[in-house]
Computed example of a mutant assay.
Amino acid sequence: MAPTVDPNGRGYRILYRQGETNYCPGCGHANWYIGRHAAECAFCATVLPLGASTHKEPEYALAG
């Protein structure tokens, strides 16, 4: 039987959070390139996964 993984028991995870000041854990700057799944520091290229608040489905509207 395979062990189960508890996502809440993984400990502290550094995430990029939209709407907050995010300092890079690598160099301390706060300038980021934001992609679809990750944010990359503009100075040292450290990559952080996006926090849950940035994972939004695109909203589509019919042209009319």
Score class of each variant (00 low, 15 high):
3 P>K: 13
5 V>T: 08
6 D>E: 08
7 P>S: 06
8 N>R: 04
8 N>I: 01
8 N>G: 01
9 G>M: 01
9 G>P: 01
10 R>I: 02
12 Y>E: 07
12 Y>V: 09
13 R>Y: 09
14 I>D: 15
14 I>M: 14
16 Y>C: 00
16 Y>D: 02
17 R>V: 11
17 R>S: 10
18 Q>L: 02
18 Q>K: 11
18 Q>R: 09
19 G>T: 07
19 G>D: 04
19 G>C: 08
20 E>F: 12
20 E>T: 13
20 E>W: 09
21 T>W: 07
21 T>S: 12
21 T>G: 10
22 N>V: 05
22 N>G: 03
24 C>G: 12
24 C>I: 11
25 P>G: 00
26 G>S: 10
26 G>K: 12
26 G>H: 12
27 C>M: 05
28 G>V: 03
31 N>L: 03
31 N>D: 07
31 N>S: 07
32 W>I: 01
32 W>M: 02
33 Y>V: 08
34 I>K: 13
34 I>L: 14
35 G>K: 01
36 R>S: 08
37 H>Q: 15
39 A>V: 12
40 E>A: 15
40 E>G: 12
41 C>N: 08
43 F>N: 10
43 F>D: 12
43 F>Y: 15
43 F>G: 05
44 C>G: 12
44 C>L: 11
45 A>V: 14
46 T>E: 14
46 T>M: 12
47 V>R: 11
47 V>G: 05
49 P>C: 06
49 P>N: 11
49 P>S: 11
49 P>V: 04
50 L>Q: 00
50 L>K: 02
50 L>G: 01
51 G>L: 02
52 A>G: 06
53 S>A: 10
53 S>W: 03
56 K>M: 02
56 K>G: 01
57 E>K: 05
58 P>W: 11
59 E>L: 07
60 Y>L: 05
60 Y>I: 00
61 A>D: 12
61 A>I: 09
61 A>E: 11
61 A>L: 15
62 L>C: 06
62 L>W: 10
63 A>E: 09
63 A>C: 10
63 A>H: 14
64 G>C: 07
